[in-house]
Design a protein around this nucleic acid. Structure first.
Lengths: 223, 223
DNA sequence: ACCTGAACACCGTTCAAGT
DNA sequence: ACCTGAACACCGTTCAAGT
């Protein structure tokens, strides 16, 4: 309203842009995040953003890096590598629950900047330091991360899986379209997919399997 | 050249459109698939497509349904449910290798039409018929599909994981940008991620775990 | 019935101009 | 140094018009 209180309108930094972008993507979905809409939200013209961020791809990379940081490093939080893997898996799921756009962010771009690779590096280091050799480290990482991301994809936005049509999309048809074409899916849905329990079920299955197959476990990394 | 041989230019059906779209997406990447470019490839104007396909979303749904069909149903191909799960997992990976755009197709939209849900239904039926109850069926399905899709995401296009920066994107920087910021990732990459072996390692880990935890296995479904 | 041109409301991004 | 308007090359989609 009044152009006297210019103090309230903050000076538009890269950080402020990332903040606004993240809440916009979380609340309205990643597909609603356009440079023009983001600028409008910040009370500024679209082209002003390019003074702080080189491209939209860089913006998305920044969002992914920022959310990835929320996973943490789990350094020394577990007594052995399997505890650390478990901690990281649960932390990843927590981030996905805190930020609805996280999984889509993660699965729609490469981890090509060092900033985004840091959490990966930290996890690998944590496994390696716990006593796994290079191949075992890669194996454990790849298996667990595969499971976690795949599960989250099913959980969020109903992609792939069975989850009850929830997520970003609108309900496909209020009136059941074809009543009995896929009956078992409906029954499984009505039975209810037990989210937390189901996630930890598979997670513990994997970790237990890895523990018996990868002998390198050590009680505590010294130094 | 000659407008006499109109016979060679096929009459543009939904099927021909899907075929052209799939090869375009496989060869140039899903982000290169636009209605206008697809039409140009078919020697037609963009708006002509709307006579056969209601929207771009429907086009993508059709592509996903078509590629999903390639997984097959694995009905009676395995001796028990764990063999059937294994068959489905390997078939899914085979589709991903045959169609570079498959994983992106799968992780970027919901399975909201019955056409796309049919392979899921077939898999569930196969598990249920093998002796698992409803909750066990959901559990086994969710765990395996999570792992498979997550692994494929890492494998294709270097999303998430460690894989050697390959995939749809161009190499981020020929001159190594920051030589020692993420040293362990580089070492793991150079060590080489053993694709097939790594996939089956985790897969068998999961299936073995499921086998011991889900007691409902039966040697052969009767009828 | 099927194809088309023009048009609409959006995109990301560049660039010369403003302050 | 930072913001802006106009412009460019793209999108998906509608609609009235052609055959």
């Amino acid at each position: 309203m009044s152009e006297v209180r210019t103090d309230t309108r903050r000076p538009l930094s890269r950080d402020a842009i990332l903040n606004a972008a993240l809440t916009l993507a979380d609340e309205q979905g990643l597909e609603a995040l356009s440079m023009r809409r983001l600028a409008a939200q910040l009370g500024v013209e679209a082209m002003s953003l390019y003074n702080h961020i080189p491209s939209k791809a860089a913006l998305l990379a920044g969002l992914l890096a920022r959310t990835l940081m929320g996973i943490g490093t789990a350094h020394g939080e577990g007594r052995d590598w399997s505890d650390e893997l478990r901690t990281i898996a649960l932390a990843t799921r927590a981030v996905a629950q805190r930020h609805p756009c996280f999984v889509q962010l993660l699965t729609s771009q490469q981890l090509h900047t060092d900033e985004m690779l840091l959490p990966v590096e930290a996890t690998l280091r944590s496994l390696h330091a716990a006593g796994l050799d290079l191949e075992q480290t890669a194996q454990a990482y790849q298996t667990i991360v595969g499971y976690v991301v795949g599960f989250l994809l099913q959980e969020r936005s109903g992609v792939i899986g069975i989850s009850c049509c929830g997520g970003a999309g609108d309900p496909p048809d209020p009136t059941l379209p074809t009543p009995n074409s896929v009956p078992l899916i409906r029954r499984v849905q009505e039975d209810g997919t037990a989210g937390d329990r189901s996630f930890e079920f598979g997670l513990d299955l994997l970790i237990a399997g890895l523990s018996t197959r990868l002998p390198g476990a050590r009680p505590r990394a010294v130094g």
